[in-house]
C-alpha cells in the first residue's frame, strides 16, 4: 500500500495536538508519522501526517470536524519535498572510528560530537535516506537514535 501525506493547518492553541491524536486513536487510524511545528503565519501550526490507510478520506473528514483544524491538504507525492531530521549516537573505538565517520559523512550525515567511545551524527533527508544511514551504522552498535517525524511541502503553487 502506498503512503499518503496529509498537511494539516491548525490553530496554535493548547490541546490541539491532543485533539488530533485523540481523533486518530479514537477512529482506529494507523499512522506512520506525525510531526508538528510552527508556520510562517502567526497563530498557525502545521502537522504533517503520514499514513498508509486506504480510508484517508475518512481521516481527513474526521480531522476536519475538529474546530481547531483549519485546512487539510493531501500532498501529491510527485510534487512533494519531504524531509526528516535524525540524531544518532553510535559506538566507536580506535579501530572503527575512521570508518564510521567516513561512512556516515558519505551518506550525508554530519558528525556533531565525537567522543572516545561514541559519535553523534545529525542528518536531514528523506526518510529512506535516514533508514539507509541507520542500517549502515547498525553493525557498529547504535546506542540511541531519535527521528523528528516527517515534514513535507508541495513544490508547485
Amino acid at each position: 500500500m502506498s503512503e499518503r501525506i496529509l498537511s494539516v493547518l491548525v490553530e496554535d492553541k493548547p490541546g490541539v495536538l491532543a485533539r488530533v491524536a485523540s481523533t486518530i486513536s479514537r477512529r482506529g487510524f494507523n499512522i506512520n508519522s506525525l510531526a508538528v511545528g510552527p508556520t510562517n503565519i502567526e497563530g498557525r501550526s502545521k502537522m504533517t501526517i503520514v499514513t498508509e490507510l486506504e480510508s484517508v478520506e475518512q481521516v481527513k473528514k474526521q480531522l476536519n470536524k475538529l474546530i481547531n483544524v483549519i485546512k487539510i491538504v493531501e500532498l501529491d507525492p510527485d510534487n512533494t519535498i519531504e524531509s526528516e531530521v535524525l540524531l544518532l549516537k553510535v559506538s566507536i573505538n580506535k579501530d572503527t572510528q575512521t570508518s564510521v565517520i567516513e561512512k556516515a559523512s558519505l551518506s550525508g550525515a554530519k558528525s556533531v560530537d565525537v567522543g572516545q567511545d561514541y559519535a553523534v551524527f545529525e542528518m536531514t533527508g528523506s526518510s529512506k535516506d535516514l533508514d539507509k544511514l541507520e542500517n549502515l551504522l547498525k553493525p557498529f552498535g547504535i546506542i540511541e537514535m531519535i527521528r523528528g517525524g516527517r515534514i513535507a511541502i508541495q513544490t508547485k503553487l
Binding site: 493548547p14 490541546g15 491532543a18 485533539r19 485523540s22 481523533t23 479514537r26 470536524k65 475538529l66 474546530i67
Partner: peptide
C-alpha cells in the same frame, strides 16, 4: 475535564 471529555464533545474549552 477537558481531556476526559475531548472524545465526548463536539468541542470543549478551558
Amino acid at each position: 475535564t477537558v481531556g476526559l471529555t475531548m472524545a465526548a464533545t463536539k468541542h470543549n474549552y478551558l
